[in-house]
Nucleic acid binder design. Structure first.
Ligand SMILES: [Mn+2]
Ligand SMILES: [Mn+2]
Ligand SMILES: [Mn+2]
Ligand SMILES: [Mn+2]
Lengths: 150, 150
DNA sequence: ACAAGGTTGTAGCCAAGGCTACATTTCGGA
DNA sequence: TCCGAAATGTAGCCTTGGCTACAACCTTGT
């Protein structure tokens, strides 16, 4: 088949830079992952319960409550959420938009995995990590692939 | 299609635990990612140049050299690599095994992405992050999907 | 009305993984 | 040979995202 990149030649500056850029991108994507998961989770909770409490967020994320508090602090700092003490957490418009995008991407990734034969439980599990590394181009390719079916 | 999980009900302990477990797994996978990328990189360099120097590792990973030094220190601490001052870095048997697994998984992920229509450059880029979240079951499904082709 | 228990906030610890600045060692070319 | 440049090591800083322990605040049942 030979569809793979040649082994990196550390003497070629262009190849080295390209490779470095791939790792750099993966690191950037990872830094966004936490924001994405929390906005999606908060949106889920508000849809279902009308509010998102720190305790519920923490329990569903599988972390201790001060960890969730810190994450929400970061969401607020980045303009994605607001909250008042002892009240719930709410998404700003930007946060709600992110939640929408993230939910849609999550769904497409799960569907794609299932479509290529991954067991649904594995698909759900792996998608939680994979989704954060799916670029727009890849997402569109997934949608095309799924569209050319039922 | 309705292949998706129902919205998480934070009142159901079983569902909450399952959801928490997915996030927890994604965090664990992420913690392994750095080790995987470095072992693969070191193995690449040794194959091609007979040795893996800190400078080359750092340049190809896109980080400053003390960052690479720290990562190698962690590899050594975890029994995946050895090194002596001012000499190169070498993989232990465990490290070499990890490199093999990681390289194989990377290749399969790229091929799968391309097979479902992702542009090769996007595939290479996104695979660098996705690969760390592909479980054994998902990997096997990818291989089956690719096998039922050319 | 109020005490108890659940929820939230806050302080402070840790490890990982980035970085810069500087010291030391190695190595290749004059 | 030996000196300067490159490579490597080391110190120390920062942010993120985990945690526990404890304090303060609500809310609810009696
Ligand atoms: Mn996720
Ligand atoms: Mn998700
Ligand atoms: Mn990778
Ligand atoms: Mn890789």
């Amino acid at each position: 088949m030979m569809t793979h990149e040649p082994p990196a030649d550390p003497d070629d500056p262009a190849l080295a830079a390209a490779q470095a850029e791939r790792f750099s991108q993966a690191r950037t994507a990872q830094a966004q992952a936490l924001l994405e998961d929390y906005t999606e989770m908060i949106d889920d909770l508000i849809r279902e319960h009308g509010e998102a409490r720190i305790t519920d967020i923490a329990r569903l994320m599988g972390v201790a409550h001060p960890t969730a508090t810190k994450a929400v602090a970061r969401l607020k700092r980045e303009g994605l959420a607001v909250s008042r003490p002892y009240r719930g957490v709410f998404l700003t418009e930007a946060g709600a938009e992110m939640a929408e995008r993230v939910r849609s991407r999550h769904r497409v990734v799960v569907d794609l995995l299932i479509a290529v034969g991954v067991p649904p439980e594995s698909a759900e599990r792996d998608a939680e990590g994979i989704e954060h590394h799916v670029s727009d181009e890849t997402l569109m390719a997934f949608e095309r692939f799924l569209g050319g079916r039922g």
